[in-house]
Design a binder for these strands. Structure first.
Lengths: 181, 181
DNA sequence: GGCATAGTTGAACGCAAGTTCAACAACATG
DNA sequence: CATGTTGTTGAACTTGCGTTCAACTATGCC
């Protein structure tokens, strides 16, 4: 039994639209997100974007979800390559100062939006849960886990704001330090 | 030599517009900020808002500056009342879970915007410098200062996102912990 | 081949935004 | 009081948005 070719194309275009949404948010921020802008990015009519995502909220939810999934995937990939979990997180954060800056800004803007829109909250929580899991493998102290999550969030904010970003080694050291190593 | 009454009224209206800008950003986010929205908030014609702040960026800069100044003022006031600096910061962050939530979200959204617009960056830096100063009075270790800034930033993010906010005592404990106390 | 379903599109509409500007009011100055 | 400057306003204009919808195409099913 073969699959419906229509639905296959539908999923493909849906994925294109989500990628375009992230590109738009990276470039112009959430404020610049419109159905038309996403459609322009893909090169398809605006009504197509509306067909798949009736509201802008639908686009935001899908985009944040995709961004978080990608981060979690990168984390797992780094770990699978033999890096320790903390090293992997340090690497991800270090990238924020380089090629990952745009994506990080988009993710951060969407996460902040979660404070306003409940629909985004469980998605944003997914990444926090992942960080909690990493910290939990290094300590049993709940306060330490708390501090680890907070400090990684804080470093990320610093990287986006500061002119001079921290390097991988410094981030790794700070993360290990909060774990008491 | 008396002052020009026109300029006095001008400053008053300017202040009204800045307060209105913060109110709008608290309620609707940066995305909802328009000259017309600010004007509606004040109850004046839109062209008046444009007269004082030609671009939306001008409004954003003024609003973030005012918000940061207010936070710094609150911090100094708490210290003047006899609280320790760390206790004062813990109190400010604790308020984010309560009455200060709206303002905190506005401040945070504007600070994040600083990553995109250089004009906002030195203003956002003012608050970070203040936190650095507080930490510096408790330690000489640069890494500890770094961690203190990051963790306070991280707790703030947690407070805005989480359903169950941390209480004052927990925040104070986490801050003292990162200082090594 | 014929029919139903899923996907796709362009056009039209109403609304709210930023921008511009000419006219008006308030004030300081001589 | 007369004059020039500063502040202030409402209206007109253009642009771009979300929304809606009727028409159209491609695909699966019998």
């Amino acid at each position: 039994m073969t699959e419906d070719g229509r639905k296959a194309r539908g999923r493909r275009r849906r994925a294109e639209l989500i990628a375009a949404t992230l590109a738009v948010v990276e470039r112009d921020g959430v404020a610049g997100l419109t159905h038309r802008a996403v459609a322009r990015e893909v090169g398809c009519p605006a009504s197509s974007a509306v067909y798949y995502f009736a509201t802008l909220d639908d686009l935001l939810v899908a985009a944040l979800s995709a961004a978080i999934d990608e981060y979690i995937g990168q984390l797992r990939e780094l770990v699978a390559d033999g890096r320790s979990e903390v090293d992997a997180i340090a690497q991800l954060i270090a990238d924020v100062g380089g090629p990952g800056r745009g994506r990080a800004m988009a993710e951060r803007e969407l996460t902040l939006l979660a404070a306003r829109r409940p629909a985004l909250r469980p998605i944003a929580q997914r990444w926090r849960d992942q960080v909690v899991e990493v910290a939990s493998q290094h300590t049993d102290d709940p306060a330490t886990v708390l501090a680890f999550v907070d400090v990684s969030e804080g470093i990320c904010a610093r990287m986006l704001l500061d002119i001079e970003p921290l390097g991988y080694d410094e981030i790794r050291t700070e993360l290990l330090r909060v774990l008491g190593r």
